[in-house]
């Protein structure tokens, strides 16, 4: 062993991975922030996000309950949103971007639906996730908009139109109970190959760290002040930077990671 040089080298071997990791992560962060959408979307407040403020609290609560029951039953995530402005974009473009921003629907199933109403622009759209395009087809959503939503909107009854539209969407989703059950079953989280690999990697990493720890414990007893200092310094890094997911956020509803490819229909009044 090269006696006197050891402490210096040890310090560098501990430090350079940290700077390297920072260097690796920095471009990623930059890429993420630069790919942000051009729209300034409202915050996802829940299954009913009334950013335009056109719904009474009682109606909102009732819709929320309906949509929650649907997700319970078939895992489909239906979201009703009203926005004060489309910010100059087409309703199709805005709805698709908002759908992807909120990640509506379960990640593997993409079974989300967004009913978007822009009262100011007099535009309405039902945006359908990839996984439901076969059930809520363009023709079906167009019919819902033409026959259930637009007549009420034309009469000035925004809340009534939204309610009728939501009822119709849920009705179509539940038309075939057998199919709905199959959809719910398929949405059950299942361990994919990727998950197994991730688990394996985690186990190996933990075992490796445990081994290192064991080595240090075994050597540590007879060690002088040098090894004692090292133990304190290295232990501080994993303990302080480790974060176990934020469980406190779990009561707030959020999208399941679904996406949409522009399915659905739009209308105006």
């Amino acid at each position: 062993m090269s006696g006197t040089a050891a402490p210096v080298e040890r310090r560098t071997t501990v430090r350079w991975p940290v700077s390297a990791i920072v260097a690796l992560l920095l471009p990623l962060v930059l890429v993420w922030s630069s790919s942000a959408q051009a729209y300034s979307f409202p915050e996802l407040a829940g299954r009913v996000t009334d950013a335009a403020g056109v719904l009474d609290p009682a109606i909102r609560a009732q819709l929320e309950a309906q949509l929650a029951a649907q997700e319970q039953k078939t895992s489909d995530q239906v979201v009703v949103a009203t926005v004060p402005s489309l910010e100059g974009g087409a309703v199709e473009d805005y709805a698709n971007a908002l759908f992807r921003e909120w990640r509506i629907g379960q990640a593997e199933k993409n079974n989300g639906v967004l009913l978007l109403v822009a009262p100011h622009e007099h535009q309405v759209r039902i945006e359908v996730g990839y996984g439901l395009e076969g059930i809520l087809t363009d023709a079906v959503t167009s019919t819902i908009i033409r026959t259930a939503i637009v007549p009420a909107f034309k009469a000035g009854d925004l809340a009534g139109g939204i309610q009728k539209g939501t009822d119709a969407i849920l009705e179509v989703l539940n038309l075939d109970p057998e199919e709905a059950r199959a959809r719910a079953a398929a949405a059950e989280p299942e361990m994919t190959q990727e998950d197994w690999l991730g688990l394996l990697f985690l186990v190996l990493a933990v075992a490796f760290l445990a081994y290192l720890f064991w080595r240090r414990m075994r050597n540590g007893g007879s060690g002088g002040p040098r090894s004692g200092r090292r133990r304190a310094g290295e232990a501080a890094v994993p303990v302080t930077t480790w974060s176990w997911g934020s469980d406190s956020d779990s009561d707030r509803w959020s999208g399941g990671g679904g996406s949409s490819g522009g399915g659905g229909a739009s209308g105006n009044w």
């Binding site: 473009d93 698709n96 087809t137 363009d138 023709a139 959503t141 949409s260 522009g262 229909a265």
Partner: peptide
């Protein structure tokens, strides 16, 4: 409605 939807999907 299908043509409309398809044009939109093409755009996306």
């Amino acid at each position: 409605s299908q043509i409309e939807g398809t044009e939109n999907r093409i755009a996306v």
